[in-house]
Amino acid sequence: MLHVENLTASIGGTPILNGLDLDVGSGGVHAIMGPNGSGKSTFAHALAGRDGYEIDGRATLDGVDLLDMEPEARAAAGVFVGFQYPVEIPGVNNMYFLRTALNSVRRARGETEIGARDFLAVAQEAMDLVEMKEDFLHRAVNAGFSGGEKKRNEILQMAVMEPRLAVLDETDSGLDIDALRIVASGVNALRRPERSMIVITHYQRLLDYIKPDFVHVLVDGRIVESGDHTLALHLDDHGYADFVNHDLDDAPERPLSGAAR
């Protein structure tokens, strides 16, 4: 389904991804783990279509080349990326945003648009999934949301968009244990035989809640080890030191700056 081959990405001449290979089959849940600075978020942005990277290699979804597509076309093709730092958009109503997003991909796929009333039912179901109250829909997108609310909003969007491939980037970062449980159970409820997921995380903790079929270790922009979920347990006990041949840089990755004005 998703086929990534020799993917490279650099920014201003600095290489970040150095020949990443990955195959994700239909219905599979793959975890990508790695130390800070290993390229995890860059991989997510490379799939989503963020500007500013020099990209080479191949990434296809159901045989369709993603890398030449605009971000909105990738969404229409079924790619959804849940971000580590969801952007705040003051003044844009969450419900209106969600319906515009859903109808945009439906339009791009030649499907009929969904009306306001039918959409409310879709949104209601998605909100139940992440245990959100209705006022959530009437607030501006992520504006003034707590860290947990932002992550729940990402999962809510994923539930509404029903993607073919969901890439969840550090969905567990900044969550307390209750929020983590809600987010993880939301993700689990969205597992489908026809939907693949890539769960990117620094810590094994999330994988106690979301059981992956495969675990990959990303170091220096390359997958250096793959295995089943026991690999994650090994990393939890031993850290990434076995896979890294230089000092680990624990500096946090650069966050997406907020949209707040």
Partner: peptide, 28 residues
């Protein structure tokens, strides 16, 4: 905000419409 524009586009919203949404949000 280019980050907000990117965020909206990853949700399938075409660039021109994403711009309108952001400008409208600023005015609203």
């Amino acid at each position: 905000d280019t980050d907000a524009l990117y965020y909206l586009r990853t949700r399938g919203i075409p660039e021109a419409e994403a711009r309108r949404l952001l400008v409208g949000g600023f005015a609203d």
